[in-house]
Design a protein around this nucleic acid. Structure first.
Lengths: 250, 250
DNA sequence: ACCTGAACACCGTTCAAGT
DNA sequence: ACCTGAACACCGTTCAAGT
């Protein structure tokens, strides 16, 4: 009764690198990146922490693998988009690129922690590189020189993968860091209130809040629609690239 | 001989929040963000780790403060730029904005770890907000509606502060995450070599490397000039905004 | 071969105690 | 009031030992 395993059945508990990585993604989705520790992951898998090191070199390698899983999802999502017909006009690079990037974005929205991990990687996932290759391919179809393609990839930066570095994410914003650090408030409303108090010091900021913020949700900092803003920024860049590509033509 | 302190002299070792934060910045500049721990910072200051908690609520608060120090440097650098004359033409918003952002960038280049910390903050530094206010002010002088200003700030994202999220930073890149994780190589050349091996799978990527990479440093992935690429992306966005602002005019 | 338990060198932080 | 030492609950990881 040592190993209760039926003849043809694969061992239910056979730990593989793939199973470890999938479990890690599930755990991060559910409990956040901070909850993804070697010990908690082991608990999730019903094994001891040290057993993980048999399938993963160390935590860095675990995170590399986890990024690769997400990147594979991106490749998959992009692959499911309908292909451009062979006789598509040259100008179709733009909507096609846009669609691919927005498809990548839907995947990253499912894994909100992934962008942080992606940023922190020193190595790169082959799935990410393949995805980049497809973006580059689209631009080439649009007549871009490789020099322009290269600049374009840099200009897109993280937007190529579907996220942008928002530096004004006032979800749970406080202005504590400027005071003595003891103040601690969570609501965006509170942050807005604080900004409004400084109207004399931040005249333009406050006026912007008053004018733009009013429109829908009523004067709080939390009005921003991430998706809208992402697409605005993306289109700004795509429009600019289109213009540069036109200029390259003889 | 308990307290060898001269009469009018301020206690040389009087610990203040400001001194703690300055020390933290120095330490991060010298040894990197990973080396900034409560214990190492205390050692740097010649005190015990627990004494820090008298001037800083916890590590989060320390990082908030450290960001604020850097943001103050940015404000300072921007403040030293020559002001726009009152009769400057409306169009001068663009070079002025550009100059401010590039000035912010020089500060962040002095503190390479700062962007990571900036991204991770939930609270915001008042110095950052004041800096943003000056950017908004410039766009208003350029005739932007507040709606456009708002979109513009989102579109700029981290670029407003002088850095961009590069997702293809192949300084020490490896492709380890796609294999079994045991491969470990440091050089960009190695990464390039690996990509070249996959020429059939990554046709456009490899061709781009061959064509663009050749020009200066000779076919390695490390050819990218960060400053050039940052300015390319920034100008792409500024040009786009200029066009949208023109369109808003009656 | 795969998995384990104890142990090590770190973290941030609490707490009671010193001056 | 400011600072301290010991201790606690965590990390990632090494190592010798189990099967």
């Amino acid at each position: 009764m040592t190993s209760p395993r039926a003849a043809g059945t694969a061992p239910r508990s056979a730990l593989t690198r793939a199973r470890v990585l999938e479990s890690a993604v599930t755990l991060a989705d559910r409990d956040g990146l901070g909850a993804l520790t070697m010990r908690s992951l082991a608990r999730e898998l019903g094994i001891e922490a040290m057993s993980l090191y048999h399938h993963v070199a160390n935590k860095e390698d675990l995170l590399d693998g986890v990024v690769d899983v997400v990147a594979a999802e991106i490749q998959d999502a992009v692959g499911r988009l309908e292909a451009l017909p062979d006789d598509a006009p040259e100008s179709s690079w733009k909507p096609a690129l846009r669609r691919q990037i927005l498809a990548a974005r839907t995947v990253l929205l499912r894994h909100p922690w992934a962008s942080t991990v992606l940023e922190s990687r020193k190595s790169f996932s082959l799935h990410v590189v393949r995805y980049y290759d497809s973006l580059i391919g689209l631009m080439r179809r649009g007549g871009f020189s490789y020099d322009l393609v290269h600049h374009a990839m840099h200009a897109l930066g993280s937007r190529a993968l579907g996220f942008s570095q928002e530096l004004f994410e006032p979800d749970g914003a406080t202005a504590g860091s400027a005071g003595d650090g003891s103040a601690e408030e969570g609501a965006a409303d509170a942050a807005t209130a604080l900004l409004l108090q400084m109207a004399d010091e931040l005249p333009h900021m406050v006026e912007m809040l008053a004018e733009v913020g009013h429109q829908d949700t009523g004067s709080t900092l939390g009005w921003c629609d991430d998706q809208t803003e992402f697409e605005f920024g993306l289109d700004l860049i795509l429009d600019g690239l289109e213009r540069l590509a036109e200029r390259e033509k003889p």
